[in-house]
Nucleic acid binder design. Structure first.
Lengths: 201, 201
DNA sequence: CAATATCGCTAACGAACATTAGCCAAAGCA
DNA sequence: TGCTTTGGCTAATGTTCGTTAGCGATATTG
C-alpha cells in the first residue's frame, strides 16, 4: 500500500532528474520531495551517484516489464491494419505512462554522461520498437499479406517517425499539441499501411 | 585571423555545454578553456545565463547559414536518386561539422529548460529537413517523376529515419559505429527511393 | 600626451552543494 | 524486557559555485 521511503526517493528523483537534469537536481530537492531532510537520505543511499544507478536499474526493469506487458507479446498481427492498432496501443501506453515518460526525458538529458545511458536511450527510443516490428513484418510476409522487402529497413521506416513524434510529445506539454501528435502518429501508420500493404485481396 | 576572447568563450562554452550540460559546466571551466580566469569572463558576459543566451543566438545563426549554404538552396532534384545525393551531402555536412554537432547535443540536453530551446531542437532535428524534402517531393510530383501522395507524410517518413540516425551518430563516438551509421542512412535513402519512386520509365 | 576605456588579474563574498557526525525515538527482535 | 537496528533529525564540514570589488597594465582616443 504505502511505498517505502527508499522507493519514494527513486520516484521523486526520477521526476526531478527528468525536469532539471542530474546536475540541476540537489540532494535537498530530492529529500524534500520525498518528505525527509537532506542528510536523512543517506540512510537509504550512500551517495547521489548511487541514486542515479538505482534509478537506471529500476527504470530499465519497469520499462521492459511494461513493454512486454499484458501477455500480448505472443500475438502477431494478421495484417497491417491489425498491426497498426496493436502498435498504436503500445505506443500510447508508453507515451502516457508518467514513469516511462520521465525515464525517456531523463535518459535524453543524461545520454552523453555514460555509454551505458546512451545504450539505454537508444534501446528505448528505437531498438525495442523496431525489433518488434521486424518480427511482425517477417510474419506477415510469410503469411503473404505483405510484399517482400528489407524487413529491417521497413521496420525502421515505420518506427522512426513514431520515435520522432514521441520526442515531440515529450518536448511540448500543451494538451492540444499532444493530442495533435497522437493524430500524426495514427496518420503516419495509416499512410505506411497504404503505401506498403498489398492491394486489398 | 585570431578570434576575440568574447568569441572564444562562446566557442569553448558550446563544447563544454555539449559534453557536460549547462548545469554541469562551471564558469571556471569555461574561463580556463578560454585561457583566462573565471572572474575575467565577466568583462565579456554579465552572467552565466547571458553566455547561454548568446550561445543560442550564435548557434542558431550558424546552423541556418550552414543549412542554406553554398547557394544550392535554389536547386531542385530531377529524380529521387539526385535528391538522395543532395540530401546525403547536406546531412553529412551537418553530421560532421563540429559546431553543428555540439549544438545538437547541447540542445538535446537543455531542451526541457525552456520552450525556446525545445522549439529550436525540434527545428534542427526534423523541421528544417522535412520542410525542404516536402518542397522537393512537390516539385518531383509536378514533374511526374514521382507518384502522387501525401507529401507531408512522405517527407516525414524520409526524414525521420535520418533524424534517428543522426541522434545515434551523436551518441556513439566510435569511428567504426559512425561509419556504419553513414551506411545506414544511405541504405534508407536508397530503399525509400526504390519503394516510392516510379518504376524506371 | 593625457584621459579613458578595455581586459586581464587576485581576493573575497555569500550561497549552495554533497556529505559526515552524532543524537534520539520508535520498531524489531532476543 | 532489554538490546539492537532502523530511520529520522540538527549541526557542521569542506568544497565549489556564481559573482563582485578593486587593482594594474595595455590599448584607444581626445
Amino acid at each position: 500500500m504505502e511505498t517505502s521511503t527508499k522507493e519514494k526517493i527513486l520516484d521523486v528523483a526520477l521526476d526531478l532528474f527528468a525536469r532539471h537534469g542530474y546536475e540541476g537536481t540537489s540532494i535537498d530537492m530530492i529529500a524534500l520531495a520525498a518528505g525527509i531532510k537532506g542528510p536523512s537520505l543517506y540512510k537509504h543511499y550512500k551517495s547521489k551517484e548511487a541514486i542515479l544507478k538505482a534509478l537506471i536499474k529500476d527504470a530499465e526493469d519497469y520499462y521492459v516489464e511494461r513493454f512486454y506487458a499484458a501477455g500480448d507479446n505472443q500475438k502477431y498481427p494478421e495484417n497491417i491494419d491489425q498491426m497498426n492498432k496493436m502498435i498504436f496501443a503500445k505506443v500510447k501506453l508508453t507515451l502516457v505512462d508518467p514513469k516511462i515518460q520521465k525515464t525517456r526525458q531523463f535518459l535524453t538529458q543524461e545520454q552523453y554522461r555514460s555509454p551505458e545511458i546512451a545504450e539505454l536511450a537508444t534501446k528505448y527510443n528505437i531498438i525495442l520498437l523496431q525489433s518488434r516490428l521486424k518480427r511482425f513484418f517477417e510474419v506477415m510476409i510469410d503469411a503473404g499479406v505483405l510484399e517482400k522487402g528489407h524487413v529491417g529497413l521497413l521496420a525502421l521506416e515505420y518506427a522512426a517517425p513514431i520515435s520522432v513524434f514521441v520526442q515531440l510529445y515529450d518536448r511540448f506539454t500543451s494538451p492540444s499539441k499532444r493530442k495533435n501528435i497522437m493524430g500524426y502518429i495514427k496518420a503516419h501508420m495509416t499512410h505506411f499501411g497504404e503505401m506498403y500493404g498489398k492491394k486489398k485481396k
